[in-house]
Every structure is written in C-alpha cells, then in structure tokens.
C-alpha cells in the first residue's frame, strides 16, 4: 500500500520544527507502524539524511516507550493500541498522515518525535509506592486480598506510563496516569497506611509538572490500556478526604 507521511522534524529541544513529507510506496500492510518508520529511516540514511528519532523498545505494547500522535490521535486510530502494535492494515491506502510528538508542557521535545517524560518518574518518586523495605515482609498469604480488590488494582496497574493521556488532554493534564498509580496502590490492603499522605504527595507533584484536569475524558479514549477515568474520581475524592484526615497529623513533623 501507499502512504504519505507528514513527519515533525526538530533537531533539538530549542530548535525550530517543521513538517517533512515522505512518500512511502508499496509498503506491506502486515508492517507495524514502527516498522514503517524503520523503512523510512533506512531510506533516509541511504540518501544521506538523518533518520527520524523516535522512542521505542518492546514493540509489544508494554514498555510504554513508543509515543506518536498519528493523524492527530495519540497512538493513532485503533483504540486500546499502542503505536508499536498498530499495523498498516488498519490504515487507509493512499492516505496522508501527520505524525507528531506528544505535545505537552510537561514533556519537552528531545528531538523529532522523542520527548522527555521524566516528570512521570518524579511523580512516582514523590509517593507512588508502598513502603516495604526488602526483607521486612511477612508470609505472602498472611495478607488476604479480596479477588475483586486485586483485579481492580491490576486494572489500574496495567498503565504503561506512555503519556498518551497527557498528549490527548486539551489541558496537558496527567491525572489519568497519577490516578492509575494511586488507585493501584490504594485499592490494596497493603496500601492503606500511607493512603492519605500518598494522595497529597502525588497530586501536588503532578500539578508541579502538568496542567489541571477539567474532566474532558480524552485521556481514557487515548489510553492504549483503556484505563478508566473512574480512577480519577477515586483520586479526587481521596484528595478531598485527605484534607480532613491529615488534620490528625497537624502539629506532628512530617
């Protein structure tokens, strides 16, 4: 099949960017979208032009590295699918497709389609964990976790940290990412002791880097793991509750 790619090229974080058009002729519909970029890059290198920079690694939709706005949609037209799992047979022969990096203040562009998502690490560092130093754990089966709780926690924990939620959000907010991490930990019995300090730490760190959530819901549609925005409701509710609960800590050094 044939596709015309309009690819965002930008030499570095502060360099000006522009679209370049590349005509891809006679490509196999069994190719993945990233393999299309492999082919493009080999062609570019053959012509002595610098290949397009883009992040990728597992190519199985689990590492969260790949990140492309394809035709204006984070990860492209297929729902529940990361860029690396999108195959050309899902696209229309002859189409012209714009391919851009994630655009968000919290994700500065590194080069071409590669962006810096380190702000996600900062959020997890601020409170996206359960304190359990190695060696201190008791026997695993002494903690009973109702199956429903484990399943719900797993639904949230399935987040791959790709940032599509931020890219899709008109405000560049990261609430779905943060809510997924928060819910994973706070739906489990092990996560209860730190629950209300965690919610405050996570929300405040998120707001340092990203825009505010105003419930557009675009994030859920863009998420390759189809994580539910119900988790944002849980995050918000607990954040409000925390204002009351944490009063018990008033006067204590934290």
């Amino acid at each position: 099949m044939d596709l015309n790619l309009k690819v965002w090229r930008q030499a570095g974080p502060d360099a000006p960017g522009r679209f370049e058009t590349y005509a891809m002729r006679g490509v196999s519909e069994d190719m993945s979208f990233l393999e299309l970029f492999d082919v493009l890059n080999e062609q570019l290198e053959g012509r002595g032009e610098e290949p397009v920079a883009f992040d990728h690694d597992c190519r199985e939709g689990i590492c969260g590295s790949c990140a492309m706005m394809i035709g204006g949609r984070a990860h492209g037209p297929e729902t529940g699918t990361a860029t690396c799992q999108l195959h050309l047979r899902k696209l229309v022969d002859g189409d012209t497709i714009a391919v851009e990096p994630w655009r968000a203040a919290g994700f500065p562009i590194i080069k071409d389609l590669a962006v810096d998502r380190a702000a996600f690490d900062r959020i997890v560092e601020a409170g996206g964990y359960i304190t359990a130093p190695t060696g201190s754990a008791r026997d695993a089966n002494e903690i009973l976790v109702p199956k429903e709780a484990a399943d719900a926690a797993m639904d949230a924990a399935a987040c791959i940290g790709c940032g599509a939620c931020v890219a899709a959000c008109p405000n560049g907010a990261a609430q779905l990412f943060t809510a997924a991490k928060y819910s994973h930990l706070s739906l489990l019995p092990q996560g209860q002791p730190e629950r209300y300090t965690r919610v405050v730490a996570l929300v405040e760190e998120t707001e340092r880097w990203f825009g505010s959530c105003t419930n557009h819901g675009e994030c859920e549609k863009a998420c390759p793991k189809e994580i539910s925005i119900d988790f944002i409701a849980l995050l918000n509710r607990d954040y409000v509750k925390a204002q009351l609960k944490n009063r018990a800590l008033t006067g204590q050094k934290r």
Binding site: I130, A137, P146, L188
Partner: peptide, 20 residues
C-alpha cells in the same frame, strides 16, 4: 522470600476468591 516481598510492595498477583 521474593513472593513475600513483592506482595508487601503491592504487586497485584492473581488471587483466589478467598483472597489467597
């Protein structure tokens, strides 16, 4: 010990209906 450690950290391993 690995399983104990991972459960304490909140790894959502699959569970039986009784919570085990």
């Amino acid at each position: 010990n690995i399983i104990d450690q991972c459960v304490a950290q909140g790894v959502p391993f699959a569970r039986e209906y009784g919570g085990l």
